[in-house]
């Protein structure tokens, strides 16, 4: 069993436009822990930095600062050269994540060999077929010889999941694993991930922009906005009882057949139309305050985490939803509970 701990993760990209060089903070002080048998959902819109977090965990990007530490169940830290045995990733686009030139077998056999899990041809073949059967791709012998273009999107994503399992990964980062798939097969793929997680006691980071599946398929939800985690907590708490203004808007914006006619009545939330951020790239204050319906002057200062419920944290001074306004819960407004 492996636990993955992310501490104070920061990623800066430098942008060059002409001679001017500017810094863009894609991920700002993100911390969380993935534990075996639990799924954490990282939710946010495009550009919120959620994929950058995934790529840093998969060691495709180097963090500017912060730490990513994998720990075995016996408490020893996973060495750098073993890291990839423990942490694997499922990519968003199954049409791009499989090499069109190679067969399914190649995609699964390579990681098996690289991580020394098989010896000899027959053993490899057997293990490849076992992996394919685990992800419900049968007949495995037939599928193994096929090339990606001979598979449907859902089948490809199953191959990609099998590939992530091949090195015996204990931590799986799934970056929007179903957003490119047809709607009728999305839940099937998510259920497959959930089953594999149960069977292998995996720690899963599920990255998505879809609140509904985040709620149904994860235990905890982190909501990211422009690089920062603005709200975190148990899935149902965050979705059914959102406290950060951004989470509330996000939840309210999701299509809901029961809410016909609401758009004709106007928007009660008072959301300003999304535009380009008016805030400078290194602004220390709340990144949402330029769109927030209830922004105050104090929001220009760096926001802190407040615990608003059991394990439910929100990074907003207002904490809307508190029945009696901005009552500091057990703490002074300036001395919140930074986590």
């Amino acid at each position: 069993m492996t636990t993955l701990e992310v501490r104070g993760l920061v990623k800066d990209f430098s942008l060059r436009s002409g001679l001017r060089q500017s810094r863009f903070r894609a991920v700002d002080d993100v911390s969380f822990t993935l534990t075996p048998g639990r799924t954490v959902a990282l939710v946010g819109e495009s550009g919120s930095g959620k994929s950058t977090v995934a790529r840093m965990i998969a060691r495709l990007e180097r963090p500017t600062s912060g730490e990513i530490v994998a720990t075995r169940s016996d408490g020893t830290r996973v060495a750098d050269r073993d890291y990839r045995d423990h942490v694997q990733m499922v990519f968003q686009d199954p049409f791009a994540s499989l090499n069109p030139f190679h067969t399914v077998e190649h995609h699964l056999a390579r990681p098996l060999k690289l991580h020394g899990r098989v010896k000899g041809k027959a053993d490899t073949r057997r293990e490849v077929e076992r992996l394919l059967e685990r992800v419900n791709l049968t007949p495995a012998g037939d599928i193994a010889g096929r090339r990606p273009h001979e598979l449907s999107g859902g089948q490809r994503q199953r191959v990609a999941i099998a590939r992530a399992l091949a090195p015996g990964a204990r931590v799986v980062v799934a970056d929007e694993p179903v957003s490119m798939l047809d709607v009728s097969i999305r839940l099937g793929v998510l259920n497959l991930l959930a089953r594999l997680q149960r069977e292998d006691d995996l720690a899963v980071l599920y990255i998505t922009h879809d609140l509904a599946t985040a709620r149904h398929f994860s235990d905890d939800i982190l909501v990211m906005y422009r690089g920062r985690v603005v709200e975190r907590g148990p899935a149902d708490e965050v979705i059914l009882n959102p406290r950060h203004p951004y989470t509330r808007i996000l939840a309210a914006a999701a299509p809901d057949p029961e809410a016909r006619d609401r758009d004709r009545l106007g928007d009660a939330l008072g959301l300003k139309p999304a535009g380009d951020s008016a805030l400078p790239g290194d602004d220390p204050g709340c990144t949402f305050r330029d769109r927030c319906p209830s922004a105050m002057e104090i929001c220009a200062r760096r926001p802190e985490d407040f615990e608003v419920g059991q394990g439910h944290h929100v990074r907003c001074r207002l904490r809307p939803g508190d029945d009696d306004g901005a009552r500091p819960t057990g703490a002074d407004t300036t001395a919140g509970r930074p986590v």
Partner: peptide, 24 residues
């Protein structure tokens, strides 16, 4: 992504070039 996936799987650069990129 398949090149990224090969990196995540732990492939060496020369192998990524010769096996993943060159055939294409």
């Amino acid at each position: 992504d398949y090149v990224a996936a090969a990196k995540v799987a732990g492939e060496k650069p020369w192998r990524i070039i010769s096996v993943e990129i060159l055939p294409n």
